[in-house]
């Protein structure tokens, strides 16, 4: 039933229906925004990636063969947009103070979960760019090292080494957070 609704919304979008586009955005923007937060290190960047992702998605909606896979397709676009954003701005990116965003989280999370997410996300956002990209791609989004090496134009070995370093740093930082909370 839901798939049918989605197919109709996408068809309406293709016909130029603005309210259909808005409905699609309203449905998927929060989860894509979450993804963008993971891949970026500040709110402004996340917003830019989100914006870019939806523009690309709407412009290429006619290329979507299977409407039921829209969410997967949109996430892929968002990941690619994040990588493009990283590549374009790698010289400009500097370490910024990470903003706490627990107030922006949707109400579906408990307060404990919100705090935990906030802490883990803060640690991830403090990781160097490549480590952050690799840990997101591999551990959370399920890409393989081969795919990551193609996407980031790095060798498989570099991808593995970045993942190793990222894990190491995450464990260390999570350990520190644990001690502080005690």
């Amino acid at each position: 039933m839901e798939a049918l609704v989605l197919t109709n919304i996408i068809r309406s979008c293709l016909e130029g229906n603005e309210s259909a586009r808005r409905a699609l955005y309203a449905k998927y923007a929060p989860s894509i925004m979450g993804l963008c937060f993971r891949y970026s290190n500040c709110k402004a960047d996340a917003e830019e990636i989100l914006q870019e992702s939806f523009i690309k998605a709407f412009q290429n909606l006619h290329r979507l063969n299977d409407p039921e896979r829209f969410e997967w397709w949109l996430k892929r676009i968002a990941v690619n947009s994040a990588i493009t954003f990283y590549k374009k701005n790698r010289r400009l990116i500097h370490r910024r103070d990470v903003e706490h965003f627990e107030n922006m989280l949707t109400d579906s999370f408990s307060i404990d979960k919100k705090l935990e997410l906030d802490e883990v996300l803060t640690i991830i956002q403090r990781l160097p760019e490549k480590m952050r990209l690799v840990i997101n791609l591999y551990a959370i989004d399920g890409y393989t090292h081969e795919e990551i090496s193609t996407m980031l134009k790095i060798s498989i070995g570099t991808s593995k080494s970045n993942l190793f370093d990222a894990r190491k740093r995450l464990v260390k930082e999570l350990g520190k957070t644990e001690e502080n909370s005690k």
Binding site: R22, Y25, A29, P30, G34, R38, Q51, L105, L170
Partner: peptide, 28 residues
């Protein structure tokens, strides 16, 4: 750690600001 991250960010959603949709619409 991979499993932990996957579980932590499972269903992770953040509400984007309202102005973003206006920007997207304008650019489209």
């Amino acid at each position: 750690i991979d499993k932990f991250l996957k579980q932590t960010f499972d269903g992770f959603q953040v509400t984007p600001p309202e102005k973003l949709w206006d920007n997207i619409e304008l650019k489209l």
